[in-house]
Amino acid sequence: MALAQCPSCNKRVSSKAKECPHCHFVFAGQSEEDLQREFIRLQQEKKDKLLSRSMLALLLAIAAFVYLFLQQPLPDSWQYNTAIGVMIVGLLWFIINRVQMLFIKRKRR
């Protein structure tokens, strides 16, 4: 009995199983093409989620920058420090999401 990955949830299941015990994806009657299509759909769904998160992170960083530019709070005030912190967090979050997207693109079956 060999272990295989479920194309829907990517968890390890028995190759003789008729359905995934984790997500209940049915293997019986599925061709290799159907399994590949499900894997591609799952990858696209992950990419879409990461893209949405990266745009939210970029929006957060831009909003903090615009606040700094328009309001021009005094250095060492809590408004200035908060805006700088939000801008840094937004940019780091954006970079992390983009790196994750690169790993998803490189990941092949």
Rank of each mutant, 00 (worst) to 15 (best):
residue 1 M to H: 07
residue 2 A to L: 05
residue 5 Q to R: 03
residue 5 Q to D: 06
residue 6 C to K: 09
residue 6 C to Y: 00
residue 7 P to R: 00
residue 7 P to Q: 01
residue 7 P to V: 00
residue 7 P to C: 01
residue 9 C to I: 04
residue 10 N to T: 02
residue 10 N to P: 03
residue 11 K to Q: 11
residue 12 R to C: 08
residue 12 R to M: 08
residue 13 V to F: 02
residue 15 S to Y: 11
residue 16 K to H: 15
residue 16 K to Y: 15
residue 16 K to T: 12
residue 17 A to I: 12
residue 17 A to T: 08
residue 18 K to E: 06
residue 18 K to P: 00
residue 19 E to H: 06
residue 20 C to Y: 03
residue 20 C to K: 05
residue 22 H to M: 01
residue 23 C to A: 13
residue 24 H to K: 13
residue 24 H to Q: 11
residue 25 F to S: 11
residue 28 A to S: 14
residue 28 A to E: 14
residue 28 A to G: 14
residue 29 G to R: 00
residue 29 G to W: 00
residue 33 E to K: 15
residue 36 Q to E: 08
residue 36 Q to R: 15
residue 39 F to V: 05
residue 39 F to M: 08
residue 41 R to D: 02
residue 41 R to N: 04
residue 42 L to M: 08
residue 42 L to D: 06
residue 42 L to I: 10
residue 43 Q to M: 04
residue 44 Q to W: 11
residue 44 Q to Y: 06
residue 45 E to N: 02
residue 47 K to W: 00
residue 48 D to Q: 09
residue 49 K to E: 09
residue 51 L to P: 02
residue 52 S to A: 13
residue 53 R to T: 06
residue 53 R to C: 12
residue 54 S to P: 05
residue 55 M to H: 12
residue 55 M to A: 15
residue 56 L to Y: 05
residue 57 A to S: 09
residue 57 A to D: 01
residue 58 L to W: 12
residue 60 L to T: 10
residue 60 L to Q: 12
residue 62 I to P: 10
residue 64 A to G: 10
residue 65 F to R: 12
residue 67 Y to P: 02
residue 67 Y to R: 14
residue 67 Y to T: 11
residue 68 L to D: 12
residue 69 F to V: 11
residue 71 Q to H: 11
residue 72 Q to V: 03
residue 76 D to Y: 05
residue 77 S to D: 00
residue 77 S to A: 13
residue 78 W to H: 10
residue 78 W to P: 01
residue 79 Q to H: 05
residue 79 Q to R: 03
residue 79 Q to V: 09
residue 80 Y to K: 04
residue 82 T to H: 14
residue 83 A to Y: 07
residue 84 I to N: 03
residue 84 I to K: 04
residue 85 G to T: 13
residue 85 G to A: 13
residue 85 G to W: 12
residue 86 V to P: 00
residue 86 V to G: 06
residue 87 M to F: 09
residue 88 I to Y: 04
residue 88 I to K: 07
residue 92 L to P: 02
residue 93 W to G: 03
residue 93 W to S: 04
residue 95 I to C: 07
residue 95 I to Q: 14
residue 97 N to P: 00
residue 99 V to H: 12
residue 99 V to S: 09
residue 99 V to W: 14
residue 103 F to G: 10
residue 109 R to A: 06
